[in-house]
Protein backbone atom coordinates (compact mmCIF):
# COMPACT_ATOMS: atom_id res chain seq x y z
CA UNK A 1 0.00 0.00 0.00
CA UNK A 2 2.69 2.39 1.01
CA UNK A 3 4.50 1.81 -2.22
CA UNK A 4 1.29 2.45 -4.14
CA UNK A 5 0.62 5.73 -2.32
CA UNK A 6 4.15 6.75 -2.95
CA UNK A 7 3.78 5.91 -6.62
CA UNK A 8 0.55 7.89 -6.91
CA UNK A 9 2.19 10.75 -5.06
CA UNK A 10 5.17 10.70 -7.37
CA UNK A 11 2.88 10.52 -10.34
CA UNK A 12 0.91 13.53 -9.10
CA UNK A 13 4.08 15.46 -8.49
CA UNK A 14 5.20 14.51 -11.95
CA UNK A 15 1.95 15.69 -13.52
CA UNK A 16 1.99 18.95 -11.61
CA UNK A 17 5.62 19.46 -12.36
CA UNK A 18 5.30 18.80 -16.05
CA UNK A 19 2.24 20.98 -16.32
CA UNK A 20 4.32 23.70 -14.72
CA UNK A 21 6.87 23.04 -17.38
CA UNK A 22 4.27 23.44 -20.08
CA UNK A 23 3.01 26.61 -18.46
CA UNK A 24 6.52 27.94 -18.24
CA UNK A 25 7.09 27.24 -21.90
CA UNK A 26 3.90 29.01 -22.86
CA UNK A 27 4.53 31.96 -20.53
CA UNK A 28 5.04 35.19 -22.42
CA UNK A 29 8.26 37.15 -22.42
CA UNK A 30 7.57 40.15 -20.21
CA UNK A 31 9.40 43.42 -20.64
CA UNK A 32 9.18 46.48 -18.40
CA UNK A 33 10.38 49.79 -19.77
CA UNK A 34 11.29 52.71 -17.50
CA UNK A 35 11.88 56.02 -19.30
CA UNK A 36 12.65 59.64 -18.40
CA UNK A 37 10.05 61.18 -20.73
CA UNK A 38 7.08 59.74 -22.61
CA UNK A 39 6.44 57.22 -25.37
CA UNK A 40 5.45 60.08 -27.70
CA UNK A 41 8.38 62.45 -27.06
CA UNK A 42 9.50 62.36 -30.71
CA UNK A 43 12.94 61.48 -29.38
CA UNK A 44 14.80 59.17 -26.99
CA UNK A 45 11.94 57.29 -25.32
CA UNK A 46 9.72 57.07 -28.37
CA UNK A 47 12.46 55.36 -30.39
CA UNK A 48 12.81 52.61 -27.77
CA UNK A 49 9.04 52.24 -27.48
CA UNK A 50 8.71 51.85 -31.24
CA UNK A 51 11.41 49.15 -31.22
CA UNK A 52 9.57 47.25 -28.49
CA UNK A 53 6.30 47.53 -30.42
CA UNK A 54 8.02 46.22 -33.56
CA UNK A 55 9.26 43.17 -31.66
CA UNK A 56 5.83 42.64 -30.17
CA UNK A 57 4.34 42.71 -33.65
CA UNK A 58 6.79 40.02 -34.73
CA UNK A 59 6.42 37.75 -31.72
CA UNK A 60 2.71 38.31 -31.12
CA UNK A 61 0.94 40.03 -28.28
CA UNK A 62 0.52 36.81 -26.31
CA UNK A 63 4.21 35.98 -26.41
CA UNK A 64 5.65 39.41 -25.77
CA UNK A 65 4.17 41.75 -23.19
CA UNK A 66 5.25 45.34 -22.61
CA UNK A 67 4.61 47.47 -19.56
CA UNK A 68 6.11 50.87 -19.08
CA UNK A 69 6.53 53.81 -16.72
CA UNK A 70 6.80 57.29 -18.19
CA UNK A 71 8.17 60.56 -16.78
CA UNK A 72 10.75 58.97 -14.52
CA UNK A 73 12.89 62.11 -14.48
CA UNK A 74 13.40 61.64 -10.76
CA UNK A 75 15.93 58.84 -10.29
CA UNK A 76 14.48 57.66 -6.99
CA UNK A 77 11.06 57.26 -8.63
CA UNK A 78 12.67 55.26 -11.42
CA UNK A 79 14.49 53.07 -8.89
CA UNK A 80 11.21 52.33 -7.12
CA UNK A 81 9.57 51.42 -10.43
CA UNK A 82 12.50 49.18 -11.44
CA UNK A 83 12.43 47.34 -8.11
CA UNK A 84 8.67 46.97 -8.38
CA UNK A 85 8.85 45.45 -11.85
CA UNK A 86 11.70 43.16 -10.76
CA UNK A 87 9.69 41.80 -7.85
CA UNK A 88 6.80 41.08 -10.21
CA UNK A 89 8.96 38.68 -12.17
CA UNK A 90 9.48 40.46 -15.47
CA UNK A 91 12.06 38.80 -17.75
CA UNK A 92 13.73 42.03 -18.83
CA UNK A 93 13.66 45.49 -17.32
CA UNK A 94 14.93 48.30 -19.51
CA UNK A 95 16.12 51.35 -17.58
CA UNK A 96 16.34 53.72 -20.53
CA UNK A 97 18.81 56.36 -19.41
CA UNK A 98 22.41 56.63 -18.29
CA UNK A 99 21.19 58.28 -15.08
CA UNK A 100 19.70 54.96 -13.92
CA UNK A 101 22.98 53.03 -13.67
CA UNK A 102 23.61 53.49 -9.97
CA UNK A 103 20.10 52.25 -9.21
CA UNK A 104 20.76 49.05 -11.17
CA UNK A 105 23.93 48.37 -9.14
CA UNK A 106 21.67 48.46 -6.11
CA UNK A 107 18.74 46.46 -7.46
CA UNK A 108 20.14 43.88 -9.91
CA UNK A 109 21.97 41.71 -7.32
CA UNK A 110 18.68 41.32 -5.36
CA UNK A 111 16.94 39.77 -8.39
CA UNK A 112 19.42 37.30 -9.93
CA UNK A 113 16.70 35.73 -12.15
CA UNK A 114 15.67 39.02 -13.73
CA UNK A 115 17.62 40.61 -16.54
CA UNK A 116 18.24 44.36 -16.66
CA UNK A 117 19.39 46.60 -19.48
CA UNK A 118 20.44 50.23 -19.59
CA UNK A 119 22.15 52.79 -21.79
CA UNK A 120 23.71 54.59 -23.37
CA UNK A 121 26.80 53.02 -21.88
CA UNK A 122 29.28 50.20 -22.31
CA UNK A 123 29.23 49.37 -18.61
CA UNK A 124 27.46 46.18 -17.55
CA UNK A 125 28.96 46.23 -14.03
CA UNK A 126 30.57 42.84 -14.66
CA UNK A 127 33.69 44.18 -12.93
CA UNK A 128 31.55 44.46 -9.80
CA UNK A 129 30.49 40.82 -10.08
CA UNK A 130 27.02 41.64 -11.41
CA UNK A 131 25.96 39.14 -14.09
CA UNK A 132 22.40 40.14 -14.95
CA UNK A 133 22.85 43.58 -16.50
CA UNK A 134 23.12 44.28 -20.25
CA UNK A 135 24.00 47.62 -21.73
CA UNK A 136 23.48 49.28 -25.08
CA UNK A 137 25.51 51.98 -26.73
CA UNK A 138 24.57 53.84 -29.90
CA UNK A 139 27.67 55.09 -31.70
CA UNK A 140 25.86 58.38 -32.25
CA UNK A 141 29.03 60.09 -33.47
CA UNK A 142 28.81 58.00 -36.67
CA UNK A 143 25.36 59.34 -37.54
CA UNK A 144 26.44 62.78 -36.38
CA UNK A 145 29.39 62.69 -38.74
CA UNK A 146 27.24 61.82 -41.76
CA UNK A 147 24.84 64.66 -41.03
CA UNK A 148 27.75 67.00 -40.35
CA UNK A 149 29.09 66.33 -43.84
CA UNK A 150 25.65 67.05 -45.34
CA UNK A 151 25.24 70.16 -43.21
CA UNK A 152 28.57 71.56 -44.35
CA UNK A 153 27.61 70.98 -47.98
CA UNK A 154 24.22 72.64 -47.57
CA UNK A 155 25.23 75.63 -45.47
CA UNK A 156 25.80 78.80 -47.43
CA UNK A 157 26.86 81.00 -44.54
CA UNK A 158 29.23 78.38 -43.15
CA UNK A 159 27.71 78.88 -39.70
CA UNK A 160 26.04 75.81 -38.24
CA UNK A 161 24.39 75.50 -34.83
CA UNK A 162 24.07 72.51 -32.50
CA UNK A 163 21.61 72.64 -29.59
CA UNK A 164 22.33 70.01 -26.96
CA UNK A 165 20.85 69.26 -23.56
CA UNK A 166 23.69 68.36 -21.19
CA UNK A 167 27.27 67.85 -22.24
CA UNK A 168 27.40 64.11 -21.66
CA UNK A 169 26.58 60.68 -23.06
CA UNK A 170 24.72 60.29 -26.31
CA UNK A 171 24.23 64.00 -26.92
CA UNK A 172 27.94 64.68 -26.55
CA UNK A 173 28.89 61.82 -28.88
CA UNK A 174 26.44 62.99 -31.54
CA UNK A 175 27.67 66.58 -31.25
CA UNK A 176 31.34 65.64 -31.47
CA UNK A 177 30.68 63.48 -34.53
CA UNK A 178 28.60 66.19 -36.18
CA UNK A 179 31.30 68.78 -35.57
CA UNK A 180 33.98 66.51 -36.98
CA UNK A 181 31.86 65.85 -40.07
CA UNK A 182 31.32 69.56 -40.70
CA UNK A 183 34.95 70.51 -40.23
CA UNK A 184 36.24 67.64 -42.36
CA UNK A 185 34.09 68.90 -45.21
CA UNK A 186 34.54 72.62 -44.73
CA UNK A 187 37.45 73.50 -42.44
CA UNK A 188 36.43 77.17 -42.52
CA UNK A 189 32.92 76.50 -41.18
CA UNK A 190 31.92 77.63 -37.70
CA UNK A 191 30.09 75.09 -35.56
CA UNK A 192 28.45 76.81 -32.64
CA UNK A 193 27.48 74.41 -29.87
CA UNK A 194 25.10 75.46 -27.08
CA UNK A 195 24.02 73.33 -24.12
CA UNK A 196 20.74 74.31 -22.49
CA UNK A 197 21.30 72.34 -19.30
CA UNK A 198 17.94 70.61 -19.64
CA UNK A 199 16.33 67.85 -21.67
CA UNK A 200 12.94 69.53 -21.49
CA UNK A 201 13.36 73.32 -21.65
CA UNK A 202 11.56 73.84 -24.96
CA UNK A 203 11.50 77.60 -24.52
CA UNK A 204 15.26 77.93 -24.05
CA UNK A 205 15.91 75.59 -27.00
CA UNK A 206 13.73 77.85 -29.15
CA UNK A 207 15.51 81.01 -28.02
CA UNK A 208 18.88 79.35 -28.64
CA UNK A 209 17.82 78.56 -32.19
CA UNK A 210 16.74 82.18 -32.70
CA UNK A 211 20.05 83.47 -31.36
CA UNK A 212 21.94 81.12 -33.69
CA UNK A 213 19.90 82.24 -36.69
CA UNK A 214 20.54 85.89 -35.74
CA UNK A 215 24.24 85.04 -35.61
CA UNK A 216 24.03 83.84 -39.20
CA UNK A 217 23.44 80.10 -38.84
CA UNK A 218 21.51 78.57 -41.73
CA UNK A 219 21.68 74.91 -40.70
CA UNK A 220 20.78 73.61 -37.23
CA UNK A 221 20.69 70.31 -35.43
CA UNK A 222 20.17 69.13 -31.87
CA UNK A 223 19.22 66.30 -29.55
CA UNK A 224 16.69 65.47 -26.79
CA UNK A 225 12.96 66.14 -26.62
CA UNK A 226 13.35 69.91 -26.03
CA UNK A 227 14.49 70.45 -29.64
CA UNK A 228 10.90 70.64 -30.85
CA UNK A 229 11.13 74.29 -29.77
CA UNK A 230 14.16 74.78 -31.99
CA UNK A 231 12.50 72.94 -34.88
CA UNK A 232 9.51 75.29 -34.58
CA UNK A 233 11.82 78.30 -34.89
CA UNK A 234 13.82 76.77 -37.74
CA UNK A 235 10.57 76.10 -39.58
CA UNK A 236 9.43 79.69 -39.13
CA UNK A 237 12.74 81.04 -40.47
CA UNK A 238 13.15 78.44 -43.22
CA UNK A 239 16.44 77.20 -41.77
CA UNK A 240 17.49 73.59 -42.43
CA UNK A 241 17.32 71.06 -39.61
CA UNK A 242 19.01 67.71 -39.02
CA UNK A 243 17.13 65.42 -36.65
CA UNK A 244 18.14 62.79 -34.16
CA UNK A 245 16.52 59.80 -32.35
CA UNK A 246 13.45 59.49 -34.57
CA UNK A 247 12.56 60.69 -38.04
CA UNK A 248 11.68 64.31 -37.27
CA UNK A 249 10.57 65.19 -40.79
CA UNK A 250 6.83 65.00 -39.97
CA UNK A 251 7.37 67.94 -37.57
CA UNK A 252 8.57 70.25 -40.33
CA UNK A 253 8.61 68.50 -43.71
CA UNK A 254 10.04 71.49 -45.55
CA UNK A 255 13.20 71.99 -43.50
CA UNK A 256 14.22 68.61 -42.10
CA UNK A 257 16.93 67.21 -44.37
CA UNK A 258 17.47 63.91 -42.61
CA UNK A 259 17.45 62.35 -39.16
CA UNK A 260 19.75 59.87 -37.47
CA UNK A 261 17.44 57.19 -36.17
CA UNK A 262 18.31 54.54 -33.65
CA UNK A 263 16.85 51.12 -34.36
CA UNK A 264 16.94 49.58 -30.90
CA UNK A 265 15.70 46.20 -32.19
CA UNK A 266 19.30 45.58 -33.24
CA UNK A 267 20.21 45.51 -29.54
CA UNK A 268 16.94 44.10 -28.22
CA UNK A 269 16.65 41.01 -30.40
CA UNK A 270 20.00 39.42 -29.48
CA UNK A 271 19.39 40.49 -25.89
CA UNK A 272 16.07 38.65 -25.72
CA UNK A 273 17.63 35.62 -27.39
CA UNK A 274 20.42 35.64 -24.83
CA UNK A 275 17.92 35.76 -21.95
CA UNK A 276 15.96 32.86 -23.45
CA UNK A 277 19.23 30.92 -23.58
CA UNK A 278 19.83 31.62 -19.92
CA UNK A 279 22.50 34.32 -20.16
CA UNK A 280 21.02 37.25 -18.29
CA UNK A 281 23.65 39.93 -18.65
CA UNK A 282 27.25 40.90 -19.13
CA UNK A 283 27.03 41.88 -22.79
CA UNK A 284 27.28 45.28 -24.44
CA UNK A 285 25.19 45.82 -27.56
CA UNK A 286 26.56 48.51 -29.86
CA UNK A 287 24.32 50.29 -32.37
CA UNK A 288 26.31 51.39 -35.38
CA UNK A 289 25.92 52.21 -39.05
CA UNK A 290 27.58 48.86 -39.74
CA UNK A 291 25.09 46.69 -37.84
CA UNK A 292 22.04 48.74 -38.81
CA UNK A 293 21.42 50.03 -35.30
CA UNK A 294 21.93 53.53 -36.62
CA UNK A 295 20.22 54.68 -39.80
CA UNK A 296 20.00 57.93 -41.68
CA UNK A 297 16.40 58.64 -42.60
CA UNK A 298 16.34 61.07 -45.48
CA UNK A 299 13.21 63.21 -45.58
CA UNK A 300 11.42 62.37 -48.83
CA UNK A 301 9.50 65.64 -48.70
CA UNK A 302 12.53 67.83 -48.11
CA UNK A 303 14.89 69.12 -50.73
CA UNK A 304 14.43 66.02 -52.92
CA UNK A 305 10.65 65.97 -52.72
CA UNK A 306 10.39 69.71 -53.20
CA UNK A 307 12.47 69.58 -56.37
CA UNK A 308 10.40 66.70 -57.76
CA UNK A 309 7.19 68.61 -56.99
CA UNK A 310 8.53 71.75 -58.63
CA UNK A 311 9.42 69.85 -61.79
CA UNK A 312 5.99 68.22 -61.92
CA UNK A 313 4.20 71.51 -61.37
CA UNK A 314 6.34 73.21 -63.99
CA UNK A 315 7.85 75.65 -61.51
CA UNK A 316 11.26 74.38 -62.48
CA UNK A 317 11.96 74.42 -66.21
CA UNK A 318 15.04 72.49 -67.16
CA UNK A 319 17.05 74.15 -69.88
CA UNK A 320 18.64 71.53 -72.13
CA UNK A 321 21.04 74.03 -73.60
CA UNK A 322 20.00 73.93 -77.27
Amino acid sequence: MKVRKLAIGLLLIGIIGSSFGILAAAAPFRVAFVMPSTINDSAWSQSMYEALMAIQKEMGKDNFQIDYSENMFVISDAAAAIRDYASQGYNLIIAHGSQYGSSLVDIAPDFPNVSFAWGSTANTFSDMGITNVFSYQPYSEQGGYVQGVLAAKLSQSGIIGVIGPIETGDAKRYTEGFKAGVLATNPNATVSVTWTGSYSDVSLAAETARTMINAGADVLTGTSQMVIGAIGVAKKHGVLWFGYDVDQSPLAPKIVVSSVIVDWTVALKPMIESIQNGVLGGKVFPLTLANGGLKIAVNPEGLVGQTIDDIISGKIQINLGD
Binding site: S37, S200, V202
Partner: peptide, 18 residues
Protein backbone atom coordinates in the same frame (compact mmCIF):
# COMPACT_ATOMS: atom_id res chain seq x y z
CA UNK B 1 1.91 82.65 -25.65
CA UNK B 2 4.19 79.62 -25.58
CA UNK B 3 2.20 77.13 -27.62
CA UNK B 4 0.76 79.36 -30.36
CA UNK B 5 3.13 82.35 -30.50
CA UNK B 6 6.67 81.69 -29.28
CA UNK B 7 7.19 77.92 -29.64
CA UNK B 8 4.28 76.89 -31.89
CA UNK B 9 4.14 73.38 -30.56
CA UNK B 10 2.95 71.45 -27.53
CA UNK B 11 4.67 68.78 -25.54
CA UNK B 12 3.96 67.21 -22.21
CA UNK B 13 5.17 69.64 -19.47
CA UNK B 14 5.90 72.32 -22.07
CA UNK B 15 6.27 75.04 -19.42
CA UNK B 16 9.03 73.20 -17.59
CA UNK B 17 8.23 74.93 -14.28
CA UNK B 18 7.89 78.48 -15.62
Amino acid sequence: SLSIALLNTFQQNLTNGM
